[in-house]
Simulated scan of single mutants.
Amino acid sequence: MTTTAVPPAQLDADRRRRLSSLFGYAAMVVVIVIIGLPLFWILVTSFKERGDIYVQPSIWWPSVFRPENYVDATSTVPFWTFLKNSLIITSVLAVVKFVLGVLSAYGLVFLRFPGKTIVFLVIIAALMVPNQITVISNYALVAQLGWRNTFQGIIVPLAGVAFGTFLMRNHFLSIPQEIIEAARMDAAGPVRLLFRVVLPLSGPTMVAFATITVVNEWNEYLWPFLMSDDSSVAPLPVGLTQLQNNDGVTNWGPVMAGTVLTMIPILIVFLALQRHMIKGLTSGAVKG
């Protein structure tokens, strides 16, 4: 019985493949630790007593679990009012941004009008401008309109859809032109083309767009903080700051408990839709 010698080139290729896999797993472990360690610290601290939080050196596990921190987080401040405000702001902004993003991307890809390239360049330029730069001008405008401490004062300036338009446009460009032309030959108008052809082919990308939008708006802090004067319109990220004791030593247990409660809804949404989101973000990478 004879054995076939493995060529040296194949041995080198197998060795490189194993090393690549090893480095890939090592990098993944590092990323998981970097992301997961702060989340673990927040969760553990939410069950700590004040003495365990300020002890030196720091301890990773509480000596006594104190679930009462969650009661303090929801009773010390109007937590459920903040939650209601976050739901209102996030829901309205998600719907508005989704509708505007899809329609604007559809117009840029499938409709013909003068200046379409200029419009797209303006959208790209908007992606490069940090939101903090426009805070002063937006604040002055909202104050003149009398919208301070109102939901519209928080929602309207945040309703820009540059990222969503860019994402959906790239996906629409990846739809095979044969399908679009066949629909047009069947006398499909713009509205029918959108709802009967384009949107059914864009499910994963729309889920990705919606998920990213919900996560971003749920965690929005700076603009709602500037616009809200009391708990009537303040969302959860702003409301959590009221748990800090500025006159003395902050009891971080209730603060971390409120943070955990704030993360849970959006974490559930993200975990439920993460597969569709990844598929949607990569769907435009290969055209056709």
Rank of each mutant, 00 (worst) to 15 (best):
L145H: 02
V255F: 03
V286N: 04
V249T: 15
Y106N: 06
M1P: 12
N246F: 15
T282N: 05
G51M: 11
F110P: 09
P254G: 01
P204F: 00
F113Q: 08
Y70C: 03
L39S: 08
T262H: 12
Y54T: 14
D229G: 09
L93W: 09
I42F: 03
L111K: 14
Y221M: 04
L267M: 13
T262Y: 14
L240W: 05
L273S: 13
N170W: 00
P237R: 01
W223L: 06
G24R: 02
N216K: 14
V109K: 08
Y221F: 15
N85C: 00
A13G: 05
F65H: 07
V214L: 10
W218P: 05
L226H: 07
K116A: 11
V238I: 05
F113V: 04
P114E: 03
A94H: 10
T211M: 08
S63I: 13
S231Q: 08
A26E: 02
V255S: 02
V29D: 05
L193C: 08
V156F: 07
F166E: 06
M206L: 15
T150N: 08
D12R: 15
A5W: 10
N149C: 02
E181H: 06
A143R: 12
G280R: 01
E217Q: 15
N170S: 08
A9Q: 15
G153E: 00
Q152R: 11
G189T: 10
A13F: 09
P130Q: 05
I136F: 10
M128G: 09
M1L: 11
